[in-house]
Amino acid sequence: MDPEVAEILVSGLRYLGAGLAMIGTLGAGLGIGILGSGAMQGIARNPDAAGAIQINMILAIAFAEAVAIYALVVALVILFVG
């Protein structure tokens, strides 16, 4: 293969790979949605507990979000490293 063509192909595939890696954020989005819904229901049922629920919700969201951020890191590494 022509080396120039190969280089273009590699950079194109790199973008494709970064895009595919970000599919992993789908699960995190779902998880955060479920968490938010649960927290809203909890607050609606017991408004006094709003503070505690919020802190725990943010904590749980951080766990769900971590997966998305791993995907982001993988995509960024594919794009900007090496």
């Binding site: 951080a62 979000e65 971590a66 951020i69 791993y70 982001l72 890191v73 960024l76």
Partner: peptide, 16 residues
Amino acid sequence: VSFSFRLLGAIFGGAI
């Protein structure tokens, strides 16, 4: 690993 990459990913992603 999760501690370091969570912070890095969120802030570096934000910078980009």
